[in-house]
Amino acid sequence: MIEINLLPNVKRELLKTRAMRNRVISISFLVGGASIAAVVVLALILGSQIAAEAVQSGVIKDRNDKLMAVEDLNKVVTIQHQLTKINEQHSGKKINSRIFDVVTAVNPVAPNNVSFSDIKVNPESKTITLEGSAVNGYSALETLKKTILNTKVQTTDGDKSSEVSLTKEIKDGDTSFGENSEGKKVLQFSFSFEYAEELLAPANNGTVSVLTPTGKVDVTDSRQGIPDSLFKSNSKKQEKK
């Protein structure tokens, strides 16, 4: 059997080239169509975002106009800011009421007990000034001072516990003899000392106790009542020493 090639090689190459061109054009149309579709989708997304931003901007402007229309806005905002700080300030405040528990704890037992007429606390210098009178004279005053010097402040937070001295030094003040409201001769005194910072620490720092030579007093929460016998009116001075 004899085959006769009626198509020259050039003609066959031309047909192959045309077929490849058609495939390339078809693929280009598909890619182009997909690109156009992607552009349209992106344009719709961008348009929706712009529309949403315009709506939100309108809402913000409307609410801003309403807010700016409030009378004394600056004062209202300041008060609200201060209210947010109340809890923070409350948790960090010093517990000055513990001073009464401490004074009760360090007061010696009879006959060396004393009566206080004035208690001053200076938070800046961290000092306590005590003024009062003692029926038992200098013996009671010295007992009171020694009790204060040997008193410890204990802080307990969970399993951790630490102790510091209530004070390391007492600064003497005026002493004089006089008569109390009952007509008894008493020694009037005044002195001051620098207290440990842990004594008035905030309540969230743990449990605070005062350890005196005679016992232990929990001063985490201040007592509801202070004995009336702890405070007496100023006595009449007779002589100074």
Rank of each mutant, 00 (worst) to 15 (best):
L6Y: 15
V10A: 15
L15W: 08
K16G: 11
N22I: 12
S26C: 12
F29C: 11
G32Q: 06
A38Q: 08
A43K: 07
L44R: 11
S57M: 11
G58D: 06
I60W: 11
K61R: 14
R63I: 12
A69Q: 04
D72N: 15
T78I: 10
I79L: 13
T84F: 12
I86Q: 06
N87T: 14
E88C: 12
I99W: 02
F100C: 07
V102P: 01
V102D: 00
V103L: 09
V106E: 00
N107I: 00
V114C: 01
F116H: 07
F116V: 08
N122T: 14
N122A: 14
E124K: 15
Y138E: 13
E142M: 08
E142T: 07
T143S: 01
T143G: 01
T147F: 04
N150A: 09
N150K: 07
K152P: 05
T156Q: 08
T156L: 06
T156A: 08
S161K: 10
E163K: 12
L166E: 02
T167M: 04
I170R: 03
D174H: 03
E179V: 13
S181M: 02
S181T: 02
E182R: 08
K184T: 02
L187S: 01
S190K: 05
S209P: 07
V210K: 01
P213E: 06
K216N: 11
D221I: 09
G225A: 15
I226K: 04
I226W: 05
N234C: 14
